[in-house]
Amino acid sequence: MPKSHKLPEQKQVALSDIDPKDTGRFHNKEEVMQEIKELEQELQALQEKLVASKEHAVLFIFQGMDCSGKDGVIKKVFAGLHPQGISAHSFKTPSEEEARHDFLWRAHRAVPALGQIAVFNRSYYEEVLITRVHGKVTDEQAKKRFKHINHFERMLSDSGVKVVKIFLHISKEFQLEKLISRIEDTSKNWKFDPSDLKERKAWNQYSELYEELFEKCSKAAPWYAVPSDNRWYRNYAVLRIAVDVLRSLDLKEPPANPELQPLLMKLKTEEA
């Protein structure tokens, strides 16, 4: 069986123990291509059941270091889904209005309704990550936010929203290669942000903060850590997680509506 990449709940996890180059039992992309096609078809079928039943919603949260491929994996994994049943949200620096509200406000507004899927590129977790690295939130304030996050995710779960949190794990060497390529390849210059170099200097601090989140914020929704140095494996692993999660909801097609039978007979009669 493929690795689930699910992290133990409320346990200490060291990112150094997880190989960002790991590809499980596979050696190359060709070995997973057929399974990827089958999983993509199943994900589409599961989405249709999700929309039809309107009993659950699914929120996928992607976190990771700069260059970990959050945009890329969202594009690859969810591209085949019906656009009316999925939304994507990118959480950057809060706007003036967002900053005047509580730290969960802007994320809560984007939570999917029952029958829908939402994908977050970064999330409310930035409010206990980059804010601490930049000294805008103290460790004591962050601990209070951990409690709010756990309560928030529990409330979502109780409301039928399945929260799936995926950390895309890359090596520092891989990040450097990507940063260099964004400068060397002029067609990718638009992807380069000088602030990424500043954030890179805080790599170790970010790693420690993520490890804390994996332990402290996993009560209502566990974390997954997906090795992401190999893009093809990253995409495959996230696709598997997405399918497994929707499978676990045991989605059922809504029962037939008996009131429609007389209408059906009438329409057939008119056609004849």
Rank of each mutant, 00 (worst) to 15 (best):
M1R: 11
E9K: 13
Q12H: 13
V13L: 03
T23N: 02
E35T: 08
K37V: 03
E38F: 06
L43Y: 00
L43R: 02
Q44G: 04
E55G: 15
E55W: 00
E55H: 07
H56N: 14
I61M: 04
Q63A: 03
D66L: 10
D71I: 11
D71Y: 11
K76E: 11
G80F: 10
L81A: 01
P83V: 05
Q84G: 07
I86N: 02
T93E: 12
E98T: 09
E98Q: 15
E98C: 00
R100P: 03
D102S: 11
W105A: 04
A113C: 01
L114K: 14
A118V: 12
N121T: 09
Y125C: 11
Y125D: 14
E126M: 06
L129P: 00
H134C: 07
V137D: 03
T138P: 08
E140I: 10
R145Y: 04
H148E: 12
R154K: 15
M155T: 12
S157T: 13
S159I: 00
K162Y: 07
F167K: 07
F167T: 11
L168G: 03
I170K: 01
Q175F: 12
L176Y: 13
K178V: 12
I180W: 01
S181V: 10
E184V: 14
D185C: 08
T186M: 12
T186P: 14
K191N: 06
P194W: 06
P194C: 10
S195Y: 03
D196T: 13
L197H: 05
L197R: 06
R200N: 09
N204K: 15
Q205S: 05
Q205P: 05
E208N: 09
S218V: 15
A220S: 09
W223K: 08
W223S: 04
P227Q: 06
Y236E: 05
Y236P: 05
V238Q: 01
L239K: 12
L239Y: 11
R240A: 05
I241Y: 03
V243F: 07
V245R: 03
P255G: 04
P258T: 04
L260P: 01
L263F: 13
L264K: 15
L264R: 15
L267K: 02
T269P: 00
